[in-house]
Simulated scan of single mutants.
Amino acid sequence: MNSPALQRGTFLFLLAVVTIAFGWILLPFSGAVMWSVALAILFTPIYRRLVKRMGGRRNLAAFTTLLLATIIVVIPLVVITVSVVDEVSVVQQMIRSGDISFTSYFQQIVNALPHWALDLLNRFGLGNVEGFIGRVSQSALKSSQLIATHAVSIGQNTFEFLVSFGIMLYLLFFLLRDGAELSKTIRNSLPLAKPHTHYLLNKFTTVIRATIKGNIAVAAAQGIIGGIAFSFLGVQGALLWGVLMGFLSLLPAVGAALIWAPVAIYFLAVGDIGKSLTLIFIGVFVIGLVDNILRPLLVGKDTQMPDYIVLMSTIGGIALFGINGFVIGPVIAALFMAAWDLFASSGEGERDMPPLP
């Protein structure tokens, strides 16, 4: 009854139970934990340099790195968020006053369509333009109500956000200071061969670092270019649309086009050919090239994943995990590919294992 096999089985069961229970406790703050780990991986090289320059004072180096992370990441996000909130309130007032009317914009586009296009709409049952506009307006009204509801929810959850933010900064400090020891403990605890464990953990850190740096660089570049272009062309709410383009650029290939393409179509429909061609040129040859050049270089090259895997894993991750999914999706995809590479090479001997990064 007290055999070693029974003891081991009981211990493994207990280990699984307490691990699941601990994960359950951390579940409400999973986003804070994930971003603290991601930022720790991203800023660890800076922390190591500071440790050398500060004579091995790890606490001071970790605190300095935390301040740098706050200045580089947190403060710009807060400033942009406040500016966007002000911009949204201005745009909302203009929509209520009628200065901005998406219904009239759509009507102008329909009125500019040639007869063959109208016949094509009639053939597909879309000829009732007024009814279609009514449905679009109704959908816009429901969307605004939904946004207002979420805004109230965000206001009610401000305390929870502040708690999560505080946990993230607190955990980031200790991950920076003790990250090397924690990583060593994980490597020694995992029931895998040491070369396999080392390879998978290196793949994990490489993908997180490349994904965050690459996606943030692409989002910032596309958002800035799009916002400047909209401001130059006289589009109202240029800052808001620029931020939306940056956010949607997390969807590779098609993200920013969801904003600038309809505006270009509108300019073309109302006869403003110059603005339309300018925006199309900027969208295709400037914003598009940023996505097609920077993303493969910063994300695909370091992660050693094909572009289509990066695309599918990013979209799938965002669909399942929200904004956090643009990091979680590629990480899962990279670990999937790395694990199968190890499995395929395990039958050919350790010497044929994929090279360590």
Rank of each mutant, 00 (worst) to 15 (best):
16 A>N: 08
25 I>R: 09
25 I>S: 01
32 A>T: 00
37 V>F: 06
59 N>D: 15
62 A>T: 01
68 L>F: 08
70 T>A: 15
72 I>W: 13
72 I>H: 12
83 S>P: 14
84 V>R: 05
89 S>F: 09
91 V>W: 10
103 T>Y: 07
104 S>T: 13
104 S>H: 12
109 I>D: 14
113 L>V: 07
115 H>E: 15
129 V>N: 02
132 F>G: 15
132 F>I: 15
137 S>T: 13
137 S>N: 11
138 Q>K: 05
145 Q>F: 06
146 L>N: 11
149 T>H: 06
160 E>Q: 13
164 S>R: 13
165 F>S: 05
165 F>N: 07
174 F>G: 03
190 L>P: 00
209 R>F: 07
224 I>H: 04
225 I>F: 05
227 G>V: 03
232 F>D: 10
232 F>V: 14
241 W>K: 05
242 G>P: 01
249 S>H: 02
260 W>Q: 02
264 A>K: 00
267 F>D: 03
269 A>L: 00
273 I>G: 11
273 I>M: 08
273 I>Y: 09
280 I>W: 06
283 G>Y: 00
285 F>Y: 04
286 V>G: 04
288 G>P: 04
289 L>R: 15
292 N>W: 02
295 R>T: 02
304 Q>S: 14
308 Y>P: 04
312 M>Y: 12
313 S>N: 00
322 G>D: 03
323 I>E: 11
323 I>G: 12
325 G>H: 00
326 F>Y: 10
327 V>H: 04
339 A>Q: 07
341 D>H: 09
349 G>T: 11
